[in-house]
Write a protein that binds this DNA or RNA. Structure first.
Lengths: 211, 211
DNA sequence: AATTGTGAAATTGTTCACAGCA
DNA sequence: TGCTGTGAACAATTTCACAATT
């Protein structure tokens, strides 16, 4: 039975992990899986797996474990993966183009419907069958195509403007690849994917941050 | 004076954020900055900024704040950004190619020296002046070029093999873009950049994970 | 007067340990 | 017996609040 505790970000992140593991197990035909097995595949404890899942309900059977297919479906529903989402990518540069070609998104139901750029030479061309539109029509197009998620892949200085346009068009989720911190209302969900920062964390470790 | 507390991952992540803010402030010519000003630019508290910095020393002046240039340099040294690192990208597909063209890396001193692929049509060609090498020579080339950090941008099923080769070549830091969980020794630092997972977090929010 | 640096308190997240069930 | 579900204990992280300093 679902609890009413506020679910932590780390729990939701692990839900994604469980989802991936369960998809694999389902393909292999495993009927059930224990919290210990799930934990061993990642670097988690069985108790953590059980606690994470218990926030959303009692999905397992004592003595047996969790039914793979059912649990995968339950998590899909919790994460909103039992449906499709309309995604727009803003910025048809290196990263934007790579994202459009990235097959995983389609597979998970994240459908890239629009690409935007401000370069007249790119506008009108198309990537993987998706035409590149003029970013100056951003808000209108986002609304017209019922875009749920905007991926920002423009240079840093342009990112805040794009975010504001997206918010004004009613978009409630943004994935930001620009290395700047966006100011948007708390009602809009924002994730940052800053690849330089990831390398910096590795660099910290290499210079001795470890021990 | 540096403390001997174990520095948390979140503190190191914020150090990267402070570094970016300070770089901007330095360009603007600001001589000093207070913890309050730093906190306001991101969504942090002044106390957190002060505590984070205090783990590494006393960099500020009471009543005045922190000297921008000095603090930026201190953090650069802590994060290992006062030097360059040799990086190899494995996988010349969409993501790998985008990373090679991504200017931020060069700017931060992460120099992409090698690209690897297993596609004979790509091997021998070059991206941005960096030749694409045959992944079957991975370990040898990594050693020969003193690569510090390996970026894995290959399809999921190939990632674990690449990681093992990298580890066997003495690489101690890996940035993994493949949507799988890599098994590597604890002595090797690993960061995962899983873009589908980020979208899934947004999806969770959109279906009501918020409140 | 302003702002740092930091113990202590509060909060959040993780692990333990065991009752309860198949 | 094996394994879940969970309150309680524990650990980590964040925030508070204030003495110390310029």
């Amino acid at each position: 039975m679902p609890r009413n505790r506020r679910i932590s970000e780390s729990t939701v992140r692990r839900l994604s992990i469980y989802y991936r593991l369960l998809s694999g197990l389902e393909k292999e035909g495993a009927p059930t899986v224990s919290s210990r097995e799930l934990a061993e595949k990642e670097k988690l404890t069985p108790a953590q797996v059980r606690k994470d899942l218990s926030f959303f309900g009692s999905f397992g059977t004592r003595g047996l474990g969790y039914p793979v297919r059912e649990l995968r479906e339950k998590i899909a529903r919790i994460l909103g993966l039992n449906r499709t989402w309309n995604v727009a990518v803003v910025g048809a540069g290196n990263i934007g183009s790579a994202l459009v070609s990235y097959k995983e998104f389609q597979k998970q139901g994240f459908l890239i419907k629009l690409i935007f750029d401000n370069d007249q030479r790119k506008i009108g061309s198309s990537h993987k069958g998706i035409p590149v539109s003029d970013v100056s029509h951003l808000a209108d197009e986002l609304k017209a195509h019922h875009i749920d998620i905007v991926v920002i892949a423009v240079p840093g200085p342009a990112a805040q403007g794009v975010a504001e346009e997206a918010v004004s068009a009613g978009v409630r989720a943004i994935l930001n690849f620009a290395p700047v911190s966006l100011k948007i209302p708390a009602s809009v969900s924002l994730r940052n994917e800053n690849m330089s920062m990831e390398l910096e964390q590795l660099s910290y470790f290499l210079v001795g941050g470890n021990g």
